[in-house]
């Protein structure tokens, strides 16, 4: 870790003013940023502590949705009564992530911004990492890549987004509410995280001077027909090999609306639109589920060590659809 300046923001305006300075990062729960700084992967000159900002409310919106402050801790969000009742998918995804200690510290905004998972990104002894040093290469492509992406990767980067929460937020059509000295904007979750392309150093479309102030959830369309299924190497405190968030609306025995999103498989939470298309308008039965789960993995490109993830993703989608739709 390198020496840095520390300032505590007393207001949102003060925080965003600080973010205009170069090499400045926000500190919320610190569960990812401090690890990155200890490993010299992030070397900010200045840290703006935003923990005292009034961004820890969970408030219903006029249209029946929910506004979640950026500083709401993952534990508080997962266990909030309203969230458990109206957005059980989000609650389950949060509780599938990390450990209780980490969830007690980690915030909604920080969870959205956690850096991608890759052994080689996290170890500065590897010279080749386009994410750390653009243009230097990718050690993971030729290295050990069991945990890496099967969708949307680029020659420059094969890392995966590690968030469970974001996979649920994507299925719930959430928006990210951001502020900067230039003004405010809402970024749909689907546009928030990026695929690596030729600029893997950027994980998100949040600009350097922007502060996440909250997440907006539209009214839930799925009720209880949701499921979050996380497959991992141990029972708890492990990143997903594959996770699937499912939301279904079934009208008169047919799927009227569907969201199928995957975690652990791409540089961003991955929406399986082909699977959704294979569901909509069809009766929710094993045949439809098989077609949808097959569709979910079309176009997957595995690497040397993660070929198993393609079939695992297909099976996990199928199981999650059965869970959500209560199909035996």
């Amino acid at each position: 870790m390198q020496a840095f300046d520390y300032v505590r923001a007393r207001s949102i305006d003060e925080a965003v003013l600080n973010l205009r300075e170069p090499s400045t990062r926000c500190l919320a729960g610190g569960t990812n940023l401090l690890d990155l700084m200890k490993g010299d992967i992030e070397t900010p000159v200045r840290i703006v502590d935003i923990n005292r900002l009034p961004l820890n409310e969970i408030v219903p919106t006029a249209d029946g949705g929910l506004r979640i402050g950026a500083l709401v801790r993952n534990s508080d969000l997962a266990n909030h009564r309203y969230v458990r009742e109206r957005y059980p998918l989000l609650s389950r995804a949060l509780l599938a992530g990390a450990s209780p200690q980490l969830r007690n510290m980690a915030t909604v905004g920080g969870n959205l911004l956690q850096r991608t998972r890759c052994y080689y990104f996290y170890d500065t002894a590897y010279a080749a990492c386009n994410k750390r040093r653009p243009g230097s290469g990718c050690a993971a492509r030729e290295g050990y890549n069991r945990i890496h992406a099967i969708f949307g990767a680029s020659p420059q980067c094969v890392a995966t987004n590690p968030s469970d929460m974001s996979v649920a937020l994507l299925a719930l059509d959430a928006f990210v509410d951001v502020r900067s000295a230039r003004g405010s904007r809402r970024i749909p979750l689907t546009d928030f995280h990026r695929l690596p392309g030729s600029t893997p150093e950027r994980d998100t479309n949040l600009d350097r001077d922007e502060l996440i102030v909250g997440v907006i959830l539209p009214p839930s369309r799925f009720g209880g027909r949701v499921d979050y299924l996380k497959v991992r190497d141990r029972a708890s405190y492990a990143f997903a090999l594959v996770s699937v968030a499912t939301g279904l609306r079934v009208v008169d025995g047919r799927v009227a609306d569907a969201r199928v999103t995957l975690g652990g498989v791409a540089h961003k939470p991955w929406r399986a639109e082909a699977a959704e298309r294979a569901l909509i308008g069809r009766p929710l039965n094993n045949e439809t589920i098989a077609a949808a789960s097959d569709a979910a993995v079309v176009g997957a490109i595995p690497l040397r060590d993660n070929a198993f993830k393609v079939d695992l993703a297909r099976r996990t989608v199928a199981r999650s659809l059965r869970n959500a739709g209560a199909v035996a």
């Binding site: 052994y119 080689y120 996290y122 170890d123 002894a125 590897y126 050690a139 030729e142 290295g143 050990y144 945990i147 190497d233 141990r234 029972a235 708890s236 405190y237 492990a238 990143f239």
Partner: peptide, 28 residues
């Protein structure tokens, strides 16, 4: 669970931290 993965090119242990080097948790 346990497996220290040696990087083929550099001989570094790839998963040299307790998030990626797995030992059982209570739930296991």
């Amino acid at each position: 669970f346990e497996h220290s993965v040696l990087d083929r090119q550099t001989g570094r242990i790839v998963n040299s931290n307790l998030a990626e080097y797995h030992v059982p948790v209570n739930a296991d």
